[in-house]
Design a protein around this nucleic acid. Structure first.
Lengths: 207, 207
DNA sequence: AACATAGCTGAACGATCGCTTGGAAACAAG
DNA sequence: CTTGTTTCCAAGCGATCGTTCAGCTATGTT
């Protein structure tokens, strides 16, 4: 009963997400947002409660769409070396893709908001924990398959991978030469190869 | 002639730098700034012209004080492996130091402002270029001293180091477990050791 | 057709933003 | 001391911030 909404929540959250992603939190005004979302202030506040509420929704949307696209492969229970390499390759080339200047919404949020906004610190902590978890899981799987040298420091490598990723996001956002991002990825791959047992332990490439 | 200033430019620029460093650009108001600087709005605008002018001055101050403290050793013409290791060690432990949640002013600036503010993109580009230059220089010196394996990819390593550094800054600002920052530094050291020729090529430790 | 309900609209709220200004205050030069 | 110059101070400028709301519109129900 009552008048039906003229928008769908996912669609307008997507638009808000893209604006926050590009400009950050403080540089994006509610007027910018309502304009981009094609919605009136009333609807924004009826649907999300506040600018911060909308931001949280945008972050959740980012996690459930963009991040899944980036790390979906790594999330698999049986992810292993191939999935790690895919992620490293993907971000190594990400400087070439248009829109790379947006970097990563959660990385941007952490430097802009983490110290002052509780919810941002939480979502960033969740993000880093997530990255380390999926990397650790894949490395552990590789170890269980006897594909890693015995002394491979799995936890340290996972934290290292996550840290390099953050650095790449910063480089992308700062629009530095894409070779820098590529170089970082290459060196991580080299380091990864050093804990891999046999150079031929990798199964045939997938398409 | 005329009334003398009741402030000194360096001192108030330092205070402004610290505030920008903590909170970022947009979250710091001119009222916050004048209060922290102990100065009236008039003096701020007489001295710096605008909020952006003050920010630029704060960035310059950051470069000439904080950054020199961090990378002064690496800047030396004859810097080599020892200086690289010192920097990696320093940032590896930086999670332990108080105030580490501030991260790096220029790294924070790049994610918050680089896409929208020309001057920020410039200062970030300058920063990354500087980092890569000093790392490259030190690596090249080590190569000239025959301390590196012949195939050491110097340019790529330098870009890699700079990228990891950025990632560490993000991690520090997000206040994640300091072990993450430590791990990243450790793995970079491991990678560095792999391009070093003899394990005993390092001269006795300095104090 | 009439009612109840929920969403849309445009205008505007108080607060804060970056920034300006007119007059008092503090120095150097004469 | 007077004059000229520069800075300090308090108040407040117009603009924009995040947010709200009374009145209208469109729907489901009866």
């Amino acid at each position: 009963m009552g008048r039906p909404k003229m928008y769908d929540r996912e669609g307008i959250t997507d638009r808000a997400m893209n604006l926050f992603w590009e400009r950050g939190y403080h540089a994006t005004s509610t007027r910018d947002l309502t304009e981009a979302m094609g919605v009136n202030p009333y609807s924004l506040y009826a649907e999300f409660g506040s600018k911060q509420g909308l931001y949280s929704a945008a972050v959740e949307r980012y996690e459930s769409t963009v991040m899944v696209g980036h790390f979906g492969g790594l999330e698999a229970e049986d992810a292993s070396l191939e999935e790690i390499r895919d992620v490293l390759d993907f971000f190594g080339e990400s400087g070439d893709r248009k829109g790379s200047y947006r970097g990563c919404l959660l990385c941007n949020a952490s430097t802009e908001l983490a110290p002052t906004l509780e919810t941002s610190r939480e979502s960033t902590a969740r993000y880093v924990e997530y990255l380390i978890t999926v990397f650790t899981n894949a490395l552990r799987n590789a170890a269980n398959q006897d594909r890693l040298v015995e002394a491979a420091p799995i936890d340290e490598l996972a934290a290292f991978f996550a840290t390099v990723l953050m650095g790449q996001f910063v480089m992308m956002r700062a629009q530095v030469d894409r070779a820098v991002v590529r170089s970082a990825a290459n060196q991580v791959v080299v380091r990864l190869n050093e804990v891999v047992l046999s150079p031929d332990s990798r199964p045939p490439q997938r398409a």
